[in-house]
Amino acid sequence: MGGLQLFGLVVLGGLVGLDGTSVGQFMVSRPLIAGALAGWIVGDPATGIAMGAVLELFLLVSFPTGGSRFPEGSTATVVAVGTASAVGGPGALPLGVALGLAWGHLGGSTVTALRKANTRAAAAPGRPMGPGRVGRALTRGIGMDFARAVLLTAAGLTVGTGLLSSPARAWPLSDDRSLALLIVGGFVSAGISLHGLGGARARGLWFLTGAAMGVAAMRIL
């Protein structure tokens, strides 16, 4: 990976990390989009979105709700795609996705840690609450979140490229089987999402209708 690409990925990690909570929430932080963007930076958007789509399937049931801690899909996807592009080989995709799942969990805990730091900063007593201080507190919060996401992405890329080069070359499964292995895990999320929509009794018929249409569409296309 070239230095410019590395720089691009790390900045992208910072930006999509911000989108998750602090700024905007346009959902460019979703794995599908972060994957396409990371792939575009490394010159292979098709692989990028392929990995993003698998991670999106896993994270279908993870939303950026204020208080709760959930894996951070945005930086994790950038790490996954960047690592896969750097290590290459038949195992790049499955190993990248697995790294993304692990890194997403770590990312979730750094979000919590930053919120605790914000809490301590907000609790600093005694100073007058002028207009300037509000702006500074917000700038500080957003700057810290950007730095957090940048460091998290850089660390993930370092770990990923360091650890996964040789296993990616020695990966024994075919591309089809590798993808199927990952999708099996993703189906648990699909089940959870139906559970959240009201379960099999309330929505089962709708689900089965959709499934039949999906199978038919694949046969035709």
């Binding site: 189906f187 699909a190 999402s193 929509l197 499934a211 249409m213 999906g214 199978v215 038919a216």
Partner: peptide, 14 residues
């Protein structure tokens, strides 16, 4: 959402 979830599973399965 339930129909789309079904569609996705059908597409991935087939």
């Amino acid at each position: 959402g339930a129909v789309l979830s079904g569609l996705l599973c059908g597409v991935l399965g087939a």
